[in-house]
Design a protein around this nucleic acid. Structure first.
Length: 419
RNA sequence: GUGGGCGUAGCUCAGUUGGCAGAGCGCCAGGUUGUGGUCCUGGAUGUCGUGGGUUCAAGUCCCAUCGCUCACCCCA
């Protein structure tokens, strides 16, 4: 082997790659049905967008970004997440000057420079949805419900929804101080102590047992929410309950991006190895202002496409890759037959019948083998004898029954048999 | 960035106290000169990750290095 995919990346190959398309399609379908419009933004952005948007204190920005200088000396970063670019595009094009909320969805690659492990790669795929410019608990609940429906439609049964509220600029600062005071009294390593000063909430999310053991009495945001945040959170929870979406309150859920306020949530699954989140999101009322825009209270999520596939695999939903690639397979014998078969394939496809044929001058036996492996229902065998008779042999590969049909009618006949 | 495990055929892997490079699956061909799957027979494919060392002799032992993988951390 001369080259391989860069560290931390991988290729999607058939037949699994087809499932990736299906997963994206399924996750997106509910969102489209709810009036979200498709947006595509560049794969790379001005580095500053992520520094300001995602937050200087986050791991994503401090150590996980693919950043480089382009030939014009600009600092460019491959997007590590999709929300900041969407907000940037909305502001740039003034989409928020129309009716609110602006509802958008996207699907694409994200990049983070991390040590790869199961479910975590340097290049990964997300489907995302964002609703910008409205502060309404029903919008938070709608998004959560749409994601939930996406997972359900894929047959996933072991996806769990965790929710929390991170408060807002009214109540979070005071809580933050209280939490810092508590954390400073604990026995923690140096890096974690540093984190107490920069982003104390994330210490709560530390999964190391020696850290968790000390957090039993830690003050929680839920107990320090202001009246407005409390009411908002209650309403989101009540709407979810009314819609029949099961959820678990997780007061330690913090998430790693700085822009989240109030509602945060994560969809977790136990089948991904040590990674558990298959999707997550929350409200980000301050993000627009962080990157120079007006107040634009918004909520959104991103669902990991490759992680969703792992979850499906863990639930045994990927097993039968059964269906054939094509419905009909052409077996030409000789030069003249190959030319005619080439045209016949085109006719079949034009008529809406998927078709493939044997290439490379294979003998009959080899070509029939190809027919078998293609998963085709029918083989069309065409040799000199058939050409002379202006006919083709139509073989049903499931019953081995073979009939001769006129070349002029084969497309119609095959179409009829397949319907 | 830190730690564990693993690198042998296209794939999954065996290879004993150091002694001729192996199996299964897949692929190709034939059994059947115009018929697939099942079956039978035969065939091809290896810088044993790479470099160095020890030894009469290294896939096997030692050192280094690269890669993969799992986990920590973090997140989708």
């Amino acid at each position: 082997m001369t080259f391989q995919a860069p560290k931390g990346t991988f290729d999607w190959l058939p037949p699994r790659s087809e499932r990736v398309l299906a997963v994206r399609e399924a996750l997106v379908q509910p969102v489209r049905q709810a009036g979200y419009g498709y947006i595509e933004t560049p794969t790379f952005e001005d580095t500053e967008l992520f520094k300001r948007g995602v937050g200087e204190s986050t791991d994503v920005v401090t150590k996980e970004m693919y950043t480089f200088l382009d030939k014009g000396g600009r600092s460019i970063t491959l997007r590590p997440e999709g929300t900041a670019p969407v907000v940037r595009a909305v502001l740039q094009h003034g989409l928020h000057n129309g009716q609110l909320p602006v509802k958008l969805w996207y699907s694409g690659s994200q990049f983070r420079y991390e040590r790869a492990q199961k479910g975590r790669y340097r290049h990964f795929w997300q489907v995302g949805a964002e609703a910008l410019g409205a502060e309404d608990p029903a919008l938070d609940a709608e998004l959560i419900l749409l994601a939930w429906q996406g997972y359900q439609s894929l047959g996933l049964r072991r996806v769990e929804l965790l929710i929390n509220s991170l408060g807002d600029r009214e109540c979070r600062p005071a809580y933050r101080g209280t939490l810092q005071e508590f954390l400073r009294g604990l026995d923690l390593d140096e890096e974690t102590r540093r984190r107490i000063e920069i982003n104390p909430l994330r210490v709560l999310d530390d999964k190391r047992p020696e850290v968790q053991a000390q957090l039993g009495d830690a003050p929680l945001m839920v107990d320090h929410l202001c009246e407005a945040c409390k009411a908002y959170h209650e309403e989101v929870r009540s709407l979810l309950a009314a819609a029949g979406v099961p959820y678990t309150d997780e007061p330690r859920l913090v998430r790693g991006l700085d822009y989240y306020t109030r509602t945060t949530f994560e969809f977790v699954h136990g089948g991904l190895g040590s990674q558990s989140a298959v999707g997550g999101g929350g409200r980000y009322d301050g993000l627009s202002e962080l990157i120079g825009g007006p107040s634009l209270p918004s909520v959104g999520w991103a669902l990991g496409v490759d992680r969703t596939l792992l979850a499906m695999e863990a639930e045994g939903l990927l097993d039968d890759t059964g269906e054939g690639r094509v419905a009909v397979y052409g077996v030409p014998l000789g030069e003249e037959a190959r030319r005619r078969m080439f045209l016949l394939m085109a006719e079949l496809r034009r008529a809406g019948v998927s078709a493939d044929m044997a290439f490379g001058g294979k003998g009959l036996k080899g070509a029939m083998k190809g027919a078998d492996r293609s998963g085709a229902r029918f083989a069309l065998i065409l040799g000199e004898r058939d050409l002379a008779a202006r006919a083709v042999q139509l073989k049903d590969l499931t019953t081995a029954e073979q009939t001769e049909v006129p070349l002029a009618q084969v497309v119609e006949i095959v179409k009829g048999k397949l319907s």
